[in-house]
């Protein structure tokens, strides 16, 4: 049996609360990251991603407490990103129970940071997040790297950049299409396929999921190793279990929750 494709729900955390309109009916406090994390764990998430979108650095400590509280109760891999700039930031997050650290802006601003980080902690915990936008009127298509939440173009080709980050020691690429993010019309499959076939490490597809078939498309046509989504799970439209069931019907190998351990 092949390696199972992973489904990763993403929690955007601002000042200690899960944001982006969470509407769960079956938990007490849908803004509490620990409750949301536990619910996704029960549904069968293969990993969890936390994106700290807190703007003020004075609140950075908050994410450490959240990661620690989640890691004390949820025994699946946790990826944490947002505002990671130094080796000390990484160590701090790993020490409270994060397994992988996602780095975006600071990798673009200081590519040697990825080398330092992978050298110190191992490639297995360094994820480089690549936010890409299609360059208009290019054939074959090309994508440019953006930072600062998709606002700042960086003049880098996304495929080349992803390859370079792998050479520097990234163990995984978290690839987000900024054109598709929030659109609910599906991943940019051409982008996903271009990056996934160019790099030796696993690629997580992100940006644009609006229905379950989009997740399966990311694997089948985007050649992604894992798929990440936020809103379709947050709004309670679908559960992780439904997503896995759908992928299984499409012939994709998934990791099923074992009943006897539920």
């Amino acid at each position: 049996m092949p390696l199972a494709k992973r489904i990763i729900p993403c929690l955007d955390v601002d000042e200690g609360r899960v944001v982006k309109g969470v509407k769960f009916v079956n938990i007490r406090d849908a803004g509490d990251p620990v409750e949301v994390a536990r619910m996704y764990d029960r549904q069968g998430a293969d990993e969890l991603a936390f994106l700290d979108i807190t703007a003020s650095s004075s609140n950075r400590e908050t994410i450490l407490h959240i990661v620690e509280a989640v890691a004390n109760q949820v025994f699946i891999p946790l990826t944490v990103g947002g505002g990671v700039r130094t080796v000390d930031n990484i160590r701090g997050l790993l020490n409270v129970g994060a397994d992988k650290i996602s780095i975006n802006t600071s990798a673009v601003e200081r590519p040697e940071f990825i080398e330092e980080a992978a050298g110190r902690f191992g490639s297995q915990c360094i994820v480089v997040a690549v936010d890409a936008r299609r360059v208009p009127d290019t054939e074959p298509p090309a994508w440019e790297v953006y930072t600062h939440g998709g606002r700042k173009p960086r003049g880098l080709d996304a495929v080349e950049w992803a390859k370079r980050m792998c050479d520097a020691g990234a163990g995984e690429i978290l690839l987000t299409s900024m054109d598709r993010d929030g659109t609910k019309i599906g991943f940019d499959l051409e982008l996903t396929r271009a990056v996934s076939s160019a790099v030796p490490v696993p690629v997580i597809a992100s940006g644009g999921v609006g229905e379950l078939s989009h997740l399966a498309d990311g694997i089948e046509f985007g050649w992604a190793d894992a798929v990440l989504a936020a809103s379709i799970f947050h709004f309670g439209e679908y559960t992780i279990a439904q997503a896995k069931e759908h992928m299984k019907r499409r012939g994709i190998e998934v990791c099923e929750i074992i009943d006897e351990f539920k």
Partner: peptide, 29 residues
């Protein structure tokens, strides 16, 4: 892709007290 990252089946090749209650070919991370 390398690293091998994710949930793969663990095929037990012997009986052992540490496998107690764990089904054959259960996936681990």
């Amino acid at each position: 892709k390398i690293p091998h990252m994710g949930w793969s089946m663990v095929h037990q090749t012997c009986r052992h007290p540490l496998w107690s209650g764990i089904a054959q070919d259960t996936r681990f991370y």
